[in-house]
């Protein structure tokens, strides 16, 4: 049962074998090609495997609904492939912390340092969500301020 296999993998305490997860997602999609979790999982597995162009293709193939569910993943793949204008467009009005981090990194890479500084100021004024995030914020804010 491919769906049960995928569910079990995703419930595991740690996920290290992203090829295995990708295979499990593809197995689900073979019989259920619009399964939202399997589509989302495939995109994340491709990002984990540094296959950013394949992730963008998977997102395009998945349609608007997948694009909405995977806004962070799409923005991140665009950022990693240097499609900064497209990423910026997608990140307009970013409200979640993950999206704000991508937006700040896009702004930094595009040398829009005022935008990056504003985003890091916002992120710094709100509660952190991840262990080590305060340190990341401090380092990245310093990099922006050094420009």
């Amino acid at each position: 049962n491919p769906t049960a296999t995928l569910t079990t993998l995703l419930r595991g305490s740690t996920i290290e074998d992203h090829e295995e997860v990708l295979k499990a997602a593809n197995a689900v999609l073979k019989s259920s090609k619009s399964n939202p979790d399997a589509l989302h999982t495939r995109v994340v597995a491709l990002l984990q495997l540094d296959r950013f162009d394949d992730a963008l293709r998977a997102l395009d193939d998945g349609g608007d609904k997948l694009g909405e569910a995977c806004r962070l993943e799409k923005a991140y793949a665009l950022y990693k492939t240097g499609k900064l204008a497209e990423a910026e467009n997608l990140l307009q009005g970013a409200d979640k912390r993950g999206l704000k981090h991508v937006a700040a990194q896009v702004a930094y890479r595009a040398e829009k340092f005022e935008d990056a500084a504003r985003l890091y100021k916002e992120l710094g004024s709100e509660p952190v969500a991840i262990e080590g995030e305060e340190n990341d914020l401090r380092i990245n804010s310093s990099a922006v301020d050094a420009q």
Partner: peptide, 21 residues
Amino acid sequence: KPLFFDAAWNYIEYPGREVEK
């Protein structure tokens, strides 16, 4: 070139394991 971290990466997670909903 100053140090700059890929902080956004930590937010990428599989469905059901998201850092934030």
